[in-house]
Amino acid sequence: MSRYEIAFSGQVVPGAQLELVKANLAKLFQADAQRIALLFSGRRLVIKNNLDAAAAEKYRATLERAGALVDVQSMDVEIEEVELAPPPSYQAAPAVATAEPRRLVVAPRDEYMAAFVDVEAPDFGIAPLGVDLQDDKPEPVAPRVDLSQFSLAPAGSDMGQIKPGPAGPPPDTSHLKLQE
């Protein structure tokens, strides 16, 4: 089922007056002048999307009667079919008993890849299932900090906090009276 979108870029029906079209769209969309001005900014704005063919035609006809030319486009994406190239044939280099890593020899699959035939790439291979490929991390070593200059005071001792001063006198409320 095809889906469509309705887009407007500020174009009016030939022979229609711009101010009348703006007034018609303001009434149709129940929008203020600022939103209508945004519609006529010249940019392509999608008004409604995900419509079936009948609803898209209904929107197009209604907006055209109001004086606006809209663009109805299908939202269906065309999927390009691509034929995949056959996988390249790999030829492993013979095992050599030296410390030098093995090199992978690849046969080019087409003209483009033939340009890379002389490139040497290491043959990394594939590890068996369940093998941990992460290198072991050494245990973290705690930094050596000299704390010999510090000591603990006995519980309840004065640690040099500032003592609060004496509380001020209470406010004088003798002049206040309650009315009955």
Results as ranks from 00 to 15, higher is better:
V106Q: 03
P143Q: 05
P169C: 00
D118M: 03
A155I: 14
A7D: 01
A66E: 00
K58F: 10
M75D: 08
A95H: 07
K22G: 10
A155Y: 12
E81C: 09
L38P: 01
E80S: 09
A142Q: 11
V21I: 05
A115Q: 15
R102W: 03
A68K: 04
D110T: 03
A92V: 13
V46S: 02
K27L: 10
A155W: 06
P128A: 15
V46T: 15
E180W: 07
I36R: 00
P86V: 05
P171T: 07
A153N: 10
L45R: 08
G42W: 10
L129E: 14
M113H: 13
R65H: 05
A155P: 03
A107F: 04
G168E: 13
S157R: 08
R60P: 01
G160K: 12
L178S: 04
L84T: 09
Q30L: 08
V145F: 08
A53D: 08
I162K: 13
M75W: 05
S2V: 04
A61C: 02
V105G: 03
E78I: 11
A66M: 03
G10Q: 00
L39R: 02
A97M: 09
S89V: 15
L104K: 14
L147D: 05
K137Y: 07
V117F: 00
Q17K: 10
P143W: 05
E80I: 07
P143S: 12
P122M: 03
E180V: 08
P169F: 00
G42S: 10
P86K: 14
R65K: 12
A16I: 01
S74E: 14
R102L: 10
V119D: 04
N50W: 02
L129K: 14
K22D: 08
S9Y: 07
R43P: 01
F8K: 04
G125W: 03
P94E: 10
E111R: 11
V119H: 03
E139D: 04
L69E: 12
R44M: 12
K27N: 14
A56P: 07
D136P: 15
A142G: 01
Y112M: 09
S148L: 07
P166A: 05
G15F: 00
V105T: 12
Q73A: 15
L51V: 00
A37N: 15
N49S: 15
R65A: 13
L133A: 06
V72K: 13
A167T: 14
P166S: 08
L69G: 02
R3S: 13
P86F: 09
M1C: 07
K22P: 12
S151N: 05
E78D: 13
P154Y: 09
V141A: 14
L152P: 01
A92P: 11
I47V: 13
G168C: 15
D110Q: 03
A85W: 02
A37I: 05
E81W: 05
E5Y: 06
P170D: 06
R144F: 13
G42L: 09
F116R: 00
D136N: 09
A167W: 06
